[in-house]
Write a protein that binds this DNA or RNA. Structure first.
Length: 562
RNA sequence: GGCCCGUUGGUCAAGCGGCUAAGACACCGCCCUUUCACGGCGGUAACGGGAGUUCGAUUCUCCCACGGGUCACCA
């Protein structure tokens, strides 16, 4: 039996604070009844990906919908993996997707990370003393002990357990080896510890696990429901040899000290839940509520579902920006996946913000869903169709300036012109839905600009060139910008009638052979000349915006080329 | 391999012991229409398998299969 008092002093001579000091330093929050405190706790090792935005949106909704607090803490406990600037990038990206933090690590005026709120520091690497205070307490209570086996030695012992070879592991042998190791570790004597400390050997602090895996803990997850998990008997690491905690320990201490009410995270954490529950119990903390959110999946080359991981298309939120998806659309899509009744609500509340939606934990799916670009596209089309021409113009321009400078400058050179174009068919009950992303704009309306105008489509060979030519010539003769759309179209019908192309679409459809063609063909002759394409938005509007000179010039060009 | 989670159409999903098993996306057809987009109408398409409980199982129980996750001084 070790002398815990002596051991604690030996291991943590520099720690003079007590857990009571910490409890006093981080007072309990005073919040309205039912207010939820949630957080996003990324490790600064890369960008935000879709799989991360997902639970974060839940955390944001739950906190803000309940009048609670959403905070951000940075889990930079693994110095080896930290990527400079990643934390800043994370925060900025989240902000564009409507995730604003009330508290935690934020970007200050100088562009650097700083703390907001009284529960800081919010970077875990700066809280060593806090964690060590609790660690010391655990040692004092005989619930944790040091282990001097170095990382290298451990790696050697578990050579078979390397990530890459994990599938080929002899699990039986591995389990026995682990058990033996655990017993050996626990048998360390005070003399050995003193000797190691005297030599200055580094150590990790391990929990003295009291669990029996044969016994189950009953547990209720807010989204997964009731489950039973085996107790933890693994003496996992609490503090690494650099004195910084592992995720497990930091999670318990931080979420307790900051009064987190709901821990929302991906379901990949479920297997370590027993460790966390054990730790909360050891530390005498009240356990928060847990919500383990199903992963977003993708299809691999064999048609199997796989967790959407960093390198996958659609993972990096910056991809969406580049592809021209607007954040509103992405949020909208996330909401449809998060709450099964969201779309129904949206149909009845077309003009409201998604933040007005009564988010409901019970409506969350507990199985992982496949990322669907099709659905995202549909949602996006609807979101954009509801925007004003001004808004679309501004957003397309901003996007183009960044990703398609040439196009961006054209749009920017005459915002009114661009706005008029985007106003075609916009507003009203049945708005046009041509744009899925900002990147679609160029193909949709680029022909308005002489710089981008090109004959993308041509006349089918079945049409008599003489008729085309005649149509175009006659049209120029009678074209008058002052005509309203009815008069304008009557003139086109008249041209067709003269050439033997009927304006009676019903009659034409009933018996196409009875006519040379229809006014649809006549319109097409003109459309191709003016837009360079077989398809375009309403041609009368197009001509009104383009102006007489351009319309005539383009038609004349076509006549000359026939 | 152990442990945990999951399994309704191609995708997202309603369903919570009795239904012709919703809806959305995608796909197909028709209508509207000068093209496209929109809109309207309709269509193809699903409860992984096997036991059991029950008068009756998509719904409850068990087993199996399959899929996923996880087994670090990473989070």
């Amino acid at each position: 039996m070790l002398d815990y008092q002596r051991l604690a002093e030996l291991l943590f001579p520099q720690i003079t604070t007590t857990t009571a000091d910490m409890e006093a330093r981080f007072p309990q929050r005073v919040l309205p009844e039912g207010a939820k405190v949630t957080r996003f706790a990324p490790s600064p090792t890369g960008f935000v990906h879709f799989g991360g935005l997902f639970p974060t949106t839940v955390a944001e909704r739950l906190a803000h919908q309940s009048g609670g607090v959403l905070y951000l803490r940075i889990e930079d406990t693994d110095a080896k993996r930290e990527v400079p600037g990643a934390a800043e990038g994370l925060i900025k990206t989240l902000a564009t997707y409507g995730i604003e933090f009330d508290e935690g690590a934020i970007i200050g005026e100088d562009g650097k990370i700083c703390d907001k709120g009284i529960y800081g520091p919010y970077k875990q690497s700066m809280r060593a003393e806090i964690y060590q205070t609790y660690a010391k307490q655990l040692v004092l209570e005989g619930k944790a002990y040091p282990c001097f086996t170095s990382e290298e030695e451990l790696e050697e012992l578990h050579a078979i357990d390397k990530k890459a070879e994990i599938k080929n592991t002899d699990w039986q042998a591995e389990a026995e080896a682990r058990q033996a190791e655990k017993l050996a570790r626990r048998a360390i004597t005070m003399e050995e510890i003193e000797e190691n400390i005297a030599k200055g050997n580094p150590f990790v602090l391990r929990i003295l696990a009291d669990g029996d895996p044969e016994k189950k803990i009953k547990f209720t997850d807010l989204v997964k429901g009731n489950m039973e998990i085996p107790e933890n008997d693994e003496d996992f690491v609490l503090l690494k040899s650099d004195g910084i905690p592992t995720y497990h320990f930091a999670h318990a201490v931080d979420d307790h000290l900051r009064g987190t009410t709901h821990v929302i995270r991906g379901e990949e954490w479920l297997p370590s839940l027993a460790k966390h529950l054990q730790l909360f119990r050891y530390l005498g903390f009240k356990t928060p509520k847990y919500m383990h959110i199903a992963q977003i999946m993708r299809l691999d080359e064999n048609g199997n579902k796989k967790k959407l991981s960093k390198r996958d298309m659609g993972a990096n939120m910056d991809d969406y920006t580049r592809l021209g998806y607007c954040p509103e659309a992405v949020c909208e899509y996330v909401m449809t996946l998060l709450n099964s009744n969201y779309e129904e609500w949206r149909m009845q509340n077309a003009d409201k913000s998604y933040k007005d939606f009564p988010f409901n934990i019970k409506k969350m799916s507990c199985s992982g869903c496949l990322f669907d670009f099709n659905k995202l596209g549909d949602v996006s089309k609807n979101v954009i169709s509801k925007m004003s021409a001004e808004e679309v113009t501004a957003k397309v321009t901003a996007w183009a300036l960044q990703f398609d400078a040439e196009f961006g400058k054209l749009l920017e050179s005459d915002a009114e012109f661009a706005k008029a174009i985007f106003a075609i068919g916009r507003g009203g009950k049945k708005p046009r839905k041509d744009l899925t992303t900002w990147a679609d704009a160029k193909a949709y309306m680029g022909f308005f600009y002489d710089e981008l105008f090109a004959l993308e489509d041509s006349y089918d060979e079945k049409y008599d060139r003489a008729d085309i030519k005649a149509t175009l010539e006659k049209f120029i003769e009678c074209f008058d910008m002052a005509d309203d759309s009815n008069v304008w179209f009557e003139k086109i019908k008249a041209i067709g009638a003269e050439l033997g192309y009927t304006a009676d679409m019903k009659a034409y459809k009933a018996d196409p052979a009875a006519f040379k063609g229809s006014v649809a063909d006549i319109s097409m002759f003109i459309r191709v000349a003016v837009t360079g394409k077989l398809n375009s938005p309403d041609m009368y509007s197009v001509m009104q915006i383009l102006g007489r000179d351009k319309v005539v010039a383009r038609i004349e060009n076509m006549i000359n080329s026939l």
